[in-house]
Write a protein that binds this DNA or RNA. Structure first.
Lengths: 266, 266
DNA sequence: GCCTTTTTAAATGCCAGACCTTTAAATGCC
DNA sequence: GGCATTTAAAGGTCTGGCATTTAAAAAGGC
């Protein structure tokens, strides 16, 4: 194992890549112990701090865990569904919030993905899934519920629904759509949305899932998508006219998901 | 900004989290410069190496970039589609390869997701997308193509197809299904699959996309899913009988995606 | 002889201080 | 005014060390 001193990348990045590749290729398998930091330093011919930086990179991706003490060290970690899900949500959230993505694009992607679950939900949903959805539905009807809690329950409802596919891999993939996009879209539309209407559509989804009615599941999603899309458009229309009234040309409210802080663009 | 010396987490993990949260919340926006490592060390009251470890964690997630020299430093990085895609693929690949996930589950998830694109592909595909698909189709018919290249072209074909939705967010989300799962599934089935049959189904998908025929797109996907599923099952059936003949009970070939190296389970 | 306690060694976690390299701005020369 | 030189700021790396954790080995008590 050697590293290239002429590479543009840092030593720690090269070393991290080398170990990461070993994990992905299967040369290092779950719970294998890596050599100690001192040994790695000798193997790669760098100092211990450099090795440590490389290991921290891997730890940031949940690829290893470290354990102190005698016979401790760095071990290849089994990536759990929960870890993968969190990473996927973080990445998706950042991608959406740092790039100019239109509300329509996000909305379209979000619903296209969730609608891919309808057939499997109708087939595989259990009573437990229906109960979880029903629980969230009740929460959403509480009169004094904060907007944050309503959004959280909204996410919980949809998560329960996609869990109804009985396919954990699919649930994990859906997290990017539901748990990353839903809150961002909520942040834009919460002022104008009607909780009653959303609750009604959720109730429709729940009933369709209970009846294993694929077609109705799909049509309820179509309604929800349509509603959200219109809501988003009306919000951006309002913002646009507000801005126009103020006399700012501002190149048109581009209906982006990005909520800029202020004019600080240094 | 202070850190908790009694926390179970490392200082570097706590500091990384603190900065990461600032980025996600929008307190630090794209191209903002973080304080120098020396200044951060003073602010958090830790040493510079500890700060550096924290920054490497963030760099591993593509959240910051660093620049040497005067007026250099760490800057908040705009997460590009390509970065997000790579991370998503890596995470998905690892999740699949480190957990006991059945071939059926992976296959089901993969096709459910890609099929969610059919409507938008029919609507939004351009000539460029069709050409990209057509190019890959030709590659797949080359007689001396290696299995690796066939797999790569297979992925390329499906990527071009989902790009046909015209929705980059959806394309990004699909990468987890197509570019992570397809190669893993190929690794299992490449011995038994018929290239001619796959090419024929790809041709069907291309024709359907060209004709903006949503229904046919969906039925071709159903064919492909069915074929892949049967292929996977027959491969695992074979392995199972091989093992039984050898006299190993081995608790039944569990048709998992994991390809264990050998008996090394220390 | 067995159980409990103490010791010890191997790791990681963290720190101080230094030197090298890179880079862009400031300076000075022509 | 334009070009070459200097300089300072910042990250990249190394050496060496101390602190803390932890499990195994050794010692001791019953």
């Amino acid at each position: 194992m050697k590293i290239d001193p002429n590479s543009t990348a840092d030593y720690s990045a090269q070393i991290a890549k080398s170990i990461r590749d070993a994990i992905i290729s299967g040369d290092l398998i779950v719970d294998n112990r890596l050599p100690s930091e001192q040994e790695l330093a000798e193997q790669f011919d760098v100092s211990r701090p450099t090795i440590r930086e490389a290991l921290k990179r891997l730890a940031a991706q949940s690829l290893i865990r470290t354990q102190r003490g005698a016979f401790g060290g760095a071990f290849v970690r089994r990536l759990s569904y929960e870890d993968a899900r969190k990473q996927h949500i973080t990445t998706s959230t950042l991608l959406l919030s740092m790039n100019d993505i239109s509300f329509d694009t996000a909305c379209q992607a979000r619903y296209a993905m969730e609608r891919s679950c309808v057939g499997l939900v109708a087939e595989n949903r259990t009573e437990a899934h229906l109960e979880a959805m029903s629980r969230e539905l009740k929460v959403q009807q509480l009169p004094d519920l904060s907007d944050e809690s309503f959004c959280a329950s909204d996410v919980g409802f949809h998560r329960a629904l996609v869990d109804g596919t009985g396919n954990p891999v699919l649930s994990y993939q859906m997290a990017g759509a539901i748990e990353a996009m839903q809150p961002l879209m909520n942040m834009i539309t919460f002022t104008d949305r009607s909780r009653a209407e959303i609750v009604e559509m959720h109730a429709g989804l729940l009933a369709a899932a209970a009846n294993r009615d694929t077609k109705r599941l799909d049509s309820e999603f179509a309604r929800l998508e349509d509603y959200t899309l219109k809501l988003g458009r009306s919000v951006f229309q309002k913002r646009k006219s507000l801005r126009t009234n103020k006399g700012k040309s501002s190149a048109g409210a581009n209906s982006s998901l990005i909520l800029r802080q202020d004019g600080s663009e240094t």
